[in-house]
Structures are given as structure tokens and as C-alpha cells.
Nucleic acid binder design. Structure first.
Length: 569
RNA sequence: UGGGGGAUAGUUUAAUCGGCAAAACACCUGACUCUGGAUCAGGCGUUCGGGGUUCGAAUCCCUGUCCCCCAGCCA
């Protein structure tokens, strides 16, 4: 590929910048990125954008992308999160060239801090946290210099070494960069480089009691690794001058930071802090609860990684803050699953049907197509017998107009089976429908009538004698408003939590072929939606999560007529 | 008169050096269908406001408005 090809195929401003740097020879033709999460929580759908961008540009421009854990704060980080993040990235479909840790650079970072002290660019400050805040000034007023700002190099060196040696308690001192207390960019008002934290780190144990701040660690880590383009979110724009300042002051290799907008969605929150609250306050079953926007949650729900990748590609890279409608993700999930998921029949809310003219005790096997979108998926057989189960809402005793399903005297097709006609409605003492007596037409096997007569409705069913019971967890949106932060005065996003985000169906009956399913596999229950076999399943107790419903035109018709009816009154 | 970033259909994005404003989702019609699924056809609707330059402006200039980020010893 020639340079001009690279430029003309650039799809966004970041790819343009990369192409330009590459053709200028700015980084000697080298190209390298990194995805740098802090292991303080689980990765979520918003991260998919940054992950995809970093890994995909690396592949496109012939470079590589590392995973680097930005593990500079032992108070918040855990090995569990490291492991989970590695698994999630792999599930998304990307493989880091290397897995690296900022904590591996603590030694080098310390040496560089000494260097900055020696060159007069850093000092030890005894001010308390509150004092430092007060001295920093405000957004509109300049700060004031610390009384400790002009200590001698010798004193700073001595103090900093003693900080590292553990001579001082937490918070007693910090190392600060000496930049400009009156800078209009508050990040440049002598930012803290090191704080004292007598805490064990998940990787370095008790080797250190001083830990570097993000700004001091990040650019230098990029530099050590040879990253060429350090891609990060918009909030770091204000930090770029500092990123550049440290690298320039150290006179080391200097990568280029470029910022882009994060990905956010309606009807959810994406911030590790808030997701943490949902988990800790038991509003969900854990980080991988299928209602969670975490990658682990989405995976468990049955969302294909491809859907997330497709969405990110569609959304693109820009500098505009944006909130994508969750319906767009739904679209990509359905698009992918429609193509790939095997079809299966399952009745969520069963109503017994007796085929009165079908011989008792007899079973025959009908052929069913596995996936009409994929010829190679083949077919399977399903047992048919006298005792069937159909979906309760596929029958109405007194059907409204436009209801095409079963009703007294009416004929429908059992998918892949026979035409049946409802002859009798059986009720209990309370007048509730408990069963249907139907007749079948033996000439319609496979679903075709030799006389060419048509039926409006085709419904799914299972043979009661052969069905496999299961538990199905139906998920709805975790939050019931587009913007969870849109709450009354004095309340927070937790108030937007939907009370109905999970309902469990325990009476579900499925066709026998579901016994072959693997945990994590997503199939379509015909006419109902996509469902994923959950790890909670046991041999005698299958558990499915509903990934997403099918598009439901009937539901729309119903809500429309309901609306119209109301309007007339 | 703190600094920085941003604004194109309901949403997210395109639009080569200033040259016909477009796609997907969503929504609405209709066709087709052994999933009220899928598919197909059609419809809806857009350059933040006001000036200016120009034959021609989403794009350039001036001006105004609105939104986002920053005052952690978080990242």
C-alpha cells in the first residue's frame, strides 16, 4: 500500500493523523498503540470502542497493540479485575502483542523522578492535602506557590529518598513537578507526581510505599514501550500539555497523544465507579449479570462480540460527545444472531393442547430447518404427539381483529408440523382456560395443505411428552429512562433503576434438541427471541438468558390500537 | 474576559482543495413469507443563530448562542 492509499482510506481524524505521521516518517515508520485500563473494575461496552480502535489501527497500519494495565493505585486495584479484563478483550476478538504493567516501570519512574529533582523540575512538598487544594487557586484565580517550593536540590533528594524508604506516614509529603502555579490550565499548577501510600500492591507487594500519579506514569510508560500513538478519551485533552512537559523535561522518546470521544449509550451508565455501586449494593447479581453493560455481562447474556465490533465500526471515531441509542446495539445483535443462531422451539408460558384425533401413545418425528438464513446449518427432527404445549398468548377465546393465531373454530399451522383446528376450550371452575382440544389434518404434515388452503397463523409448540423443562430469565433494560441521570432533585441515578429488569419463567418447556447446547451458546426460540444457555445450568436444570426479543410487529399493533382506543374516548 | 474541546435528520456518523447535503438506526406505508422473524420497495425529516466573502458555503471570515471537560495525594 502506498502512502497516498493510506491517506485516502483514512476513515476518521485519528487514522488521518496516523497516516500523515507515517508518511512523514515522524516515528521512523514505526507504529504502536496500547490499550491501558486500570484494573479497578470490569470493562464495559464503552471500552469496546477504545479497544477496537487501538487494536484495529495497529493491524491496519502494520503495527502492534499491547495491553498495559495502568496499575498505579493499589487501593483500588485487584487481580480479579486484571484477569477479567484480559478475558474480556480476548472475547471481543483481540489479542494483545504483550500484556504489560505500569508497575513494572516503578523503578525507572523513580529514577526519572530523581532526575527531575536534580534538574530543578520537582520538589518535595509538606503541605497537607487541604492546603495543596487551597494553594492551587480556582478555575478563575491563579494559585500560590508552596512555601516548600524552593527547597534545595539536596534537601529534595534527601526527602524524596526518605519518602521511598518509608520514613513518613501517608499524606505527610508529596513530590510535585515545579511548573507554573498561575497556569490557566490547572493541571500545570505543580501537579503531584508521587503520593505516600503504605499499601500492598497486587503485583509489587510491599516493595513500594510511594506510588506514581497517572500523569507522571502514563506518558513515561508509553515512552518506555515505544508507543507511537497514545489514543485516549477527550477528558485527557487538558492533560496533554503535562504529558508533553514530562517527556520534554526528561528528554526521552516522545509519543503522540490523540484524544477522541468515548462511547455512551442510552438507558445505561458506563462508569466503573457506578457499575461498582450496582454490584456492591446488590442491585444486580454481579459484574457479569446479563443486565450489566459490562463485556462480561453482555457475553453472559448472549450478545455476540461481532455485534459490538460492528457497532463500533458504524459509530466511528469523532471528537463530539455522543450518546448512541441502545436500539442501535439491539440492531447489530439481531443482525448477527439472525445470521448465525440455530432455531429451536420452546414454549415460555405453556397451554396444553390435546390433538383428539391423534392416536394415544404414538410419536412421529417431523423435520425442522435449523436456520433459514443459513442452508449449511441443516435440519433436525422434532417429536410430535397427541399431547402438545403451545404459548398461552397464541390463543384467544375472543380474538380482536388482526389476531391471526388460534381461537375457537379457527385453524393454524404448527410450525414444521400439521394444521390444527381448535374444537373445544377446556376451563376450570374459575373460568380460566386450562387446555384446548384440537383436531389435526393428517394431510398437512410438514405444514403444507395439499388442497392449497392457507392459514394466517403459524405458531410454535412442543410435544409435552418429550419436552425438556427449563428456567428462562427475561431481561429488560436496567434503567427505565433514556438518561439515568435525569432524576428529581436530591436523587441520583439509582432512582432510575427499573423494578422490572428481570423476570423469571419457571414453566418453560423446550424441544429435546436443546440438550445438545453448550453453555454460552445462543439460539433463537422461534417467534420469541434469542436465548443463551447460562453457566448456572445443570444437566437436570437448564437455565437460559434472554439475549433480546425478536422485532415484534404484533406488539406494536396492539399498543397502537390501545393508543387509538384511548384517544377516541 | 480562567483555560480547553465541540455543534450536520429523533440518534450516530458521511460529504476529496468551496461544487447536487447522504447512510445506518428509529419511525410510518406497502409487498412477500411455514417465525406477526427475516427480506424487499417506498415515505418521513438535516447543516446551532445572525452577518459577510463567493457564480456557488456544512466547509472560509466575523459575531452570537448552546453543550462538554478541568480546581483528586483517582485514572
Amino acid at each position: 500500500m502506498s502512502d497516498s492509499d493510506i491517506t485516502t482510506t483514512a476513515r476518521d481524524f485519528i487514522r488521518e493523523a496516523i497516516a500523515e505521521d507515517l508518511s512523514n516518517g515522524r516515528f521512523d515508520g514505526r507504529f504502536q498503540t496500547r490499550f491501558p485500563p486500570e484494573p479497578n473494575g470490569y470493562l464495559h461496552v464503552g471500552h469496546a470502542k477504545a479497544i477496537g480502535l487501538n487494536f484495529e489501527v495497529a493491524a491496519e497500519f502494520g503495527g502492534h497493540c499491547n495491553l498495559r494495565f495502568d496499575d498505579t493505585n493499589p487501593l483500588k486495584e485487584e487481580q480479579e479485575f486484571v484477569d477479567a479484563q484480559i478475558a474480556d478483550i480476548s472475547w471481543l476478538g483481540y489479542e494483545p502483542a504483550s500484556v504489560l504493567y505500569t508497575s513494572d516501570y516503578f523503578g525507572q519512574l523513580y529514577e526519572w523522578a530523581l532526575q527531575l529533582i536534580e534538574s530543578g523540575h520537582a520538589y518535595v512538598d509538606d503541605l497537607s492535602q487541604e492546603e495543596i487544594r487551597a494553594y492551587r487557586g480556582t478555575l478563575t484565580e491563579p494559585g500560590t506557590e508552596s512555601p516548600y517550593r524552593n527547597r534545595s536540590v539536596e534537601e529534595n533528594l534527601d526527602l524524596f529518598k526518605r519518602m521511598k524508604a518509608g520514613e513518613f506516614p501517608d499524606g505527610a509529603k508529596v513530590l510535585r513537578a515545579k511548573i507554573d502555579m498561575s497556569s490557566p490550565n490547572v493541571n500545570l499548577r505543580d501537579p503531584v507526581m508521587y503520593r505516600i501510600r503504605h499499601a500492598s500492591h497486587q503485583r509489587t507487594g510491599d516493595d513500594w510505599c510511594i506510588y506514581p500519579m497517572y500523569d507522571w506514569a502514563h506518558g513515561q510508560s508509553d515512552s518506555i514501550e515505544g508507543v507511537t500513538h497514545s489514543l485516549c478519551s477527550l477528558e485527557y485533552l487538558n492533560h496533554r500539555p503535562l504529558y508533553d512537559w514530562y517527556l520534554d523535561s526528561l528528554e526521552v522518546y516522545h509519543p503522540r497523544q490523540i484524544e477522541f470521544a468515548k462511547l455512551e449509550f442510552t438507558y445505561t451508565v458506563t462508569s466503573k465507579r457506578r457499575l461498582m455501586r450496582l454490584v456492591e449494593e446488590d442491585r444486580v447479581a454481579g459484574w457479569d449479570d446479563p443486565r450489566m453493560p459490562t463485556l462480561a455481562g453482555q457475553r453472559r447474556r448472549g450478545v455476540p462480540a461481532k455485534a459490538l465490533r460492528d457497532l463500533c465500526e458504524h459509530v466511528g471515531i469523532a471528537r463530539t460527545n455522543s450518546t448512541v441509542e441502545i436500539e442501535l446495539l439491539d440492531h447489530f445483535i439481531r443482525q448477527e444472531l439472525n445470521r448465525t443462531a440455530m432455531r429451536v422451539m420452546g414454549v415460555l408460558d405453556p397451554l396444553p393442547v390435546v390433538i383428539t384425533n391423534y392416536p394415544e401413545g404414538e410419536t412421529e418425528w417431523v423435520e425442522a430447518v435449523n436456520n433459514p438464513e443459513d442452508e449449511d446449518a441443516g435440519s433436525r427432527t422434532i417429536p410430535f404427539s397427541r399431547n402438545l404445549l403451545i404459548e398461552r398468548d397464541d390463543f384467544m377465546e375472543d380474538p380482536p381483529r388482526k389476531f391471526f393465531r388460534l381461537a375457537p373454530g379457527r385453524e393454524v399451522r404448527l410450525r414444521w408440523g400439521y394444521f390444527i383446528r381448535c374444537e373445544e376450550v377446556i376451563k376450570n371452575d374459575r373460568g380460566e382456560v386450562v387446555a384446548l382440544h384440537c383436531s389435526y389434518d393428517p394431510d398437512t404434515k410438514g405444514g403444507y395443505a395439499p388442497d392449497g388452503r392457507k392459514v394466517r397463523g403459524t405458531i410454535h409448540w412442543v410435544s409435552a411428552d418429550h419436552a425438556v423443562p427449563a428456567e428462562v430469565r427475561l431481561y429488560d433494560r436496567l434503567f427505565n429512562v433514556e438518561d439515568p441521570f435525569d432524576v428529581p432533585e436530591g436523587q441520583d441515578f439509582m432512582a432510575s433503576l427499573s423494578p422490572d429488569s428481570l423476570s423469571v419463567q419457571n414453566e418453560v418447556q423446550l424441544e429435546p434438541s436443546v440438550r445438545e447446547l453448550a453453555v454460552g451458546q445462543t439460539v433463537q426460540f422461534e417467534r420469541k427471541g434469542y436465548f443463551c444457555l447460562d453457566p448456572d445450568s445443570a444437566d437436570d436444570n437448564l437455565v437460559f438468558n434472554r439475549t433480546i426479543t425478536l422485532r415484534d410487529t404484533w406488539a406494536r399493533i396492539q399498543s397502537q390500537t390501545r393508543r387509538k382506543g384511548k384517544g377516541r374516548r
